[in-house]
Simulated scan of single mutants.
Amino acid sequence: MEPELKIVNVVVSTKIADSLDLEEVALVLENAEYEPEQFPGLVCRLSIPKVALLIFRSGKLNCTGAKSKEEAEIAIKKIIKELKDAGLDVYENPEIRIQNMVATADLGIEPNLDDIALMVDNTEYEPEQFPGLVYRMDDPKVVVLIFGSGKVVITGLKSLEDGKRALKKILETIKEIQEM
């Protein structure tokens, strides 16, 4: 049985304007926090979908916390509409790019992390410092955290397909090691 890969965070970026007056944006958007002495961008938290948007003077915007690219797109469209309705000059349909996805899965087995650390290249395992094994995979280019419980976190993903490929590779590697 294949373990189920669950996307838990999608980070996207886009550009919604040539430039923005963040003081003005802070007045328009309801859940906006703008404290330039602490952070150069404006932070806007939405409850539906549950995401945080970081908006910068340059017009660049990052959205984090979404469970899918579609969810991030809904949030960004919501913000664009609010800004447009308030008379701000923003782009109608900006290109939205996935920067990072984080996924989790349960392998359904308890892997021997010491064996994996010994036999697999690009792994780090120092249980005194961190309970998981860190595996920097080259293809797909992702970072995988493997825990003794069989739980796995994959980060650096650009697509769900990459996540499935990484998961398959991990399972094959662990099976090979267990058969030795």
Rank of each mutant, 00 (worst) to 15 (best):
L61Q: 00
D138S: 13
V11M: 09
I98L: 10
K78E: 13
P131N: 02
P94R: 07
Y34R: 05
A103P: 09
L133Y: 09
S68I: 05
L27M: 11
V10C: 08
T123L: 08
A105M: 08
A117R: 04
E37A: 09
Y125L: 10
S47F: 09
V102T: 04
S47K: 14
D18M: 12
F130D: 03
K69R: 14
L22I: 05
Q99L: 12
M137V: 07
E82W: 11
M119T: 12
V43G: 01
D114G: 07
T104M: 09
D85K: 11
D138T: 12
T64V: 11
R136E: 10
A26Q: 10
L27T: 10
V90F: 03
I16V: 15
G87M: 09
R57F: 08
L46V: 01
I96H: 07
V120F: 11
K60C: 06
Q99W: 04
L113F: 02
V10Y: 08
M119N: 14
P94W: 10
C63Q: 01
D121R: 13
R45L: 00
A105G: 08
G41R: 02
D114H: 14
S58T: 15
M101V: 11
K67P: 01
A117G: 09
K78N: 07
A105N: 05
K84H: 08
A117Q: 04
N62W: 08
A17N: 11
I80G: 07
V11C: 11
A117Y: 06
E95Q: 15
Y34T: 06
A26T: 10
V90L: 05
N122I: 00
K69V: 09
Q99D: 14
L42S: 01
A86C: 04
I76F: 02
P49N: 02
L20T: 11
N122M: 03
F39K: 01
K84W: 02
S19W: 07
L61P: 00
